[in-house]
Design a protein around this nucleic acid. Structure first.
Length: 659
RNA sequence: GCCGGUAUAGCUCAGCUGGUAGAGCGUCUGAUUUGUAAUCAGAGGGUCGGGGGUUCGAGUCCCUCUGCCGGCACCA
């Protein structure tokens, strides 16, 4: 009998027989540890208490108080317990997969009848029964044929597929929670009694495709959240409530920023307040771009399909474009029969992107190498026929405006332009309140065009550019476009959601397709590279992110209504008007509230409306030529002289690039 | 697009097993001149998302279309 040596976290080593399990190791240390144990860390692997250890290793026994390991197990075992509960209640249900997610788990089922939200209560109750029964968890490793035959006999076709998917050499682990059986890579708890019965909640039912395959029947997904204890669950539910309060769709209505309606799904009706935010942001970007060496252009909305065929978009994205068919025999009231008999139908597409139009500008008139790099920027309004299920408030829409630009340059200029852009974007994000962002670098995919040398050079240029500006990146091998690599820029908002906003793509393909050339120093005509780049992405989405990030309390310079000057008594009306006028003259969006209402009422209403500053004016202020300033959300007030408040708020209203 | 849910006044919502629509807030009118998150009273406001069906009778049941919500798939 050979021995192995296990090293504990405190550095102590002990000898055990080969094949010892962590459960036995825990038992050898103390009874109480063995009872509390949920799994083990064996070297770098998360180890089931029942799995044998056959080599020297470092070992640590996990208990419920060990954060990551415990949560992972709790959620994973809940997935199995839920699947068991579902199969007990509805034996006609076939099981598929049930992985752990960010805050919980989901399990996908195949069943003819849909699960209803009401069913969730019954499932939860059954799950609690299973937890309280303290069902033991056991595991065995089977060979492939036995596992396959087992699931075929049971009529679990999805499990058969899963068995087939397990790579050669990997163990096929069978798990039992009591009598209930599942195929699972593990690890799992000792018994279901280790699950916190009061710290989970089923969150909903939805549809889901088996491994993303849209051609197969849809499965039903039940998802849940689980935590170590009841307080953590409650905290999470509270967090969800808070997140719902900052939902941009709700705040958009409450702050009267915009609305959407059935006749124009996925398109925004911007109200005066929302359009103020939009134009303020756009004015800011326009100044930044001008300073950054961009020339602003504007291109048509409705463009003949010929251009989209030439660019290649027609072939690939035809079904995602809004088409406009025009009978041009109506042109100029030309209604003669001859005209009607000819085919005058012309098919146009609303532009889904700006790049082909920008190439047209580049192509207009012969360009020299001296013109490069040429940076053409457009606040390009685009329309894309997004699938109905993809629409989401103003975050995912069918009509949107990009802060788009295309840089025409030589291959040697790519690195410098890339570095410039990252700096540009970092400056913008910082000024807009997102100092931290992540760069993801997507490199050559399997299906691609262009030579290896060219890919080497271009990818090297992007990598060097990132390094030159002192940034890190996350590599995404194989995720680039077929014609070139790209960088995507992600930022994280106040509630931890990650958004892709900026992008930088190298494209030699479109200039080729649309015949863009420049005259090189030697007089030859050469193909420029085209760099697609956007910083905010789309105004719609970025404003949605800003709203949610700030829970509606936008930075002062972006706030649609910056100051309300509210009278306390009507005798103050004239002075209120004077204050408003002075603020407006200083560039502040100020308005008067002279209504015959109590100051409490006005303060509440404008607080709910997220106005960052309220100035109250009563007899005292009129006499002293002051104002009483109250900041949004603060209880305290401050009496400030008129001149000073105008100077102060005027400064706050100044966009960050003009300070 | 797919699965499930959902649609009642400007907003948030009530309306049990079918018997002909209700509250609070907002709006308007009047009174109140008010000191930091809702002053009081009165009035007005809905072809119950659209279309079709079952029924003596439909907000309520069925079909269908559309939007929205949660996912899946998609995101040039």
């Amino acid at each position: 009998m050979s021995l192995i040596s296990l090293t504990f976290p405190d550095g102590n080593q002990r000898q055990y027989e080969t094949g010892v399990t962590p459960a036995e190791v825990a038992e050898s240390i103390s009874k109480s540890l063995a009872k509390k144990a949920i799994s083990a860390q064996v070297d770098d692997a998360h180890w089931d208490l029942q799995w044998p250890i056959t080599e020297d290793a470092r070992i640590a026994i996990n208990t419920l108080s060990d954060d990551a390991a415990a949560l992972e197990l709790i959620r994973h075992d809940f997935a199995h317990v839920m699947a068991r509960a579902v199969q007990e209640i509805w034996p006609d249900t076939r099981v598929t997969i049930g992985p752990v997610t960010d805050k919980g788990w989901f399990y996908d089922f195949d069943r003819a009848e849909p699960f209803t939200p009401e069913d969730l209560g019954a499932i939860e109750a059954k799950m609690k029964e299973i937890v309280n029964a303290r069902e033991p968890v056991t595991t065995e490793v089977w060979d492939r044929d036995r596992a396959r035959a087992f699931y075929e006999e049971r009529g679990e076709p999805y499990k058969v597929e899963l068995v087939d998917r397990i790579p050669e050499g990997a163990p096929i682990r069978m798990y039992w929670h009591g009598d209930w059986q599942d195929l699972c890579r593990g690890p799992h708890l000792q018994h279901t009694g280790q699950l916190p019965a009061d710290a989970f909640k089923l969150m909903g039912v939805s549809g889901a495709h088996w491994f993303g395959q849209t051609d197969r029947p849809m499965l039903q997904r039940i998802s849940g959240v689980a935590f170590r204890n009841r307080d953590d669950l409650k905290a999470h539910l509270t967090f969800l409530e808070e997140a719902a309060k900052r939902d941009h769709r709700r705040l958009g209505r409450e702050m009267d920023l915009f609305h959407m309606q059935e006749e124009a799904p996925g398109q925004v009706f911007w109200h005066p307040n929302g359009w103020t935010v939009y134009t303020t942001l756009q004015d800011y970007m326009r100044r930044k771009q001008r300073a950054g060496g961009y020339r602003e252009v504007n291109t048509p909305q409705v463009v003949d399909r010929k251009l989209w065929e030439a660019s290649g978009h027609w072939e690939k994205y035809q079904h995602h474009m809004f088409l406009v068919e025009v009978d041009e025999s109506r042109d100029g009231e030309n209604d003669d029969a001859a005209a009607r008999n000819r085919d005058h139908t012309r098919i146009n597409a609303l532009k889904p992107m700006n790049c082909p139009c920008h190439v047209q500008i580049f192509n207009h008139g012969l360009k020299s190498y001296r013109d490069l790099p040429l940076r053409l920027a457009e606040f390009g309004s685009c329309a894309r026929f997004e699938p109905s299920g993809a629409l989401h408030g103003i975050m995912r829409v069918r009509g949107f405006t990009q802060d788009d630009a295309h840089i025409f340059c030589t291959e040697d200029q790519i690195q410098e332009e890339c570095a410039r852009f990252i700096d540009f974007l970092a400056g913008v994000y910082r000024e807009l309140g997102f100092p931290d962002f992540e760069i993801r670098f997507a490199t050559r995919p399997e299906k691609r065009v262009g030579t290896e040398e060219s890919w080497d050079h271009v990818e090297g240029a992007l990598e060097n550019a990132i390094k030159a500006v002192g940034r890190d990146y996350v590599l995404e091998p194989g995720d680039g476009a077929f014609y070139g690599p790209k960088l995507d820029f992600y930022l994280t908002d106040a509630i931890g959601r990650v958004w892709q906003c900026g992008t930088f793509q190298v494209d030699p393909n479109l200039p080729e397709r649309l015949g863009a050339v420049y005259v090189a120093p030697d007089g030859d005509k050469k193909r420029p590279y085209m760099l697609h780049r956007a910083c905010l992405g789309s105004f719609e989405r970025f404003i949605g992110i800003l709203i949610e990030e700030h829970a509606g309390r936008l930075p002062f310079w972006l706030a649609p209504r910056q100051v309300v000057v509210a009278s306390i008594v009507s005798e103050a009306d004239a002075y209120v008007q004077e204050v408003v006028a002075a603020l407006q003259a200083a560039g502040v969006r100020a308005e008067a509230d002279l209504r015959n209402e109590k100051i409490n009422y006005k303060v509440r209403e404008h607080s709910v409306g997220k106005v960052p500053a309220i100035l109250a004016i009563g007899h005292r202020e009129v006499e002293e030529r002051t104002v009483t300033l109250r900041r949004l959300g603060e209880k305290a007030t401050e009496v400030v002289a008129l001149d000073e408040v105008v100077a102060r708020l005027g400064r706050e209203a100044t966009p960050p690039d003009l300070l």
